[in-house]
Nucleic acid binder design. Sequence first.
DNA 1: CTGCATCCACCAGGATACTG
DNA 2: CAGTATCCTGGTGGATGCAG
Lengths: 130, 130
Amino acid sequence: MIHGNSTVTAAPADPAHGDCRKVSRVLARLGDKWSVLIVMLLGDGPRRFNEIRRMVGGISQRMLTLTLRGLERDGMVTRTVYPTIPPRVEYALTAQGHSLREPVQALGQWALDHMDDIDAAQAAFDARQP
Amino acid sequence: MIHGNSTVTAAPADPAHGDCRKVSRVLARLGDKWSVLIVMLLGDGPRRFNEIRRMVGGISQRMLTLTLRGLERDGMVTRTVYPTIPPRVEYALTAQGHSLREPVQALGQWALDHMDDIDAAQAAFDARQP
DNA sequence: CTGCATCCACCAGGATACTG
DNA sequence: CAGTATCCTGGTGGATGCAG
């Protein structure tokens, strides 16, 4: 990563940070606008398409489809189609998807714990810079 | 977040996920292309501008400036200018920045642990979809 | 209900040149 | 060395309409 797929002429960073590239690939995956939100939401159990849509609130149909496809591709969720009428599609976390919840929760907890400090820091910074 | 700054007509999600919005604000911050990389890199100690630039490898001058400004604004790093010639500017993690390393490491570890599974899942998925 | 296709706006982010 | 300023491109993501 980092260079996209472009040719890396030489290892630019010190060896210890070699895996950082791989890590940030995953980070980029989770870092998009909706993935984490959906993973956490599915942690409570399988949901249907529009059910997720309503729960997330504010996501477009298109992005929900794309995000779910991405998560499915990464083996984080399964997509189960029940050939009824009307069609019913359920999305559920895989074991891997579930395992992701823990570290994400940790980060989420951190976010909650430091939210106020961050807001304060931002306000202070903005006050210094007109 | 999620709605950007648009008016939220009604709470769209169940109450339990109320803070998820706040969390994803932080996630969006960390989810950009470079922030996490830089935070982890600064974990080893303070670094100078071009030092970071070289270590990260592949980041443009512009983006490094913007990323560092963002992190500074959020109270994650400090920026210290030594009025020497040539100028010397050091960036260092704040206490808050340091505290972030732990949950990020956890996520990074998860990424490392599941990298192979993810790649496999992707390959399998792509094989199904020509 | 669950999507895909299309069109389009926006902005993250790279390249380059210039300054203190 | 450590930035700022400007230009430009690609991708992200919203809105809408159509289909199974």
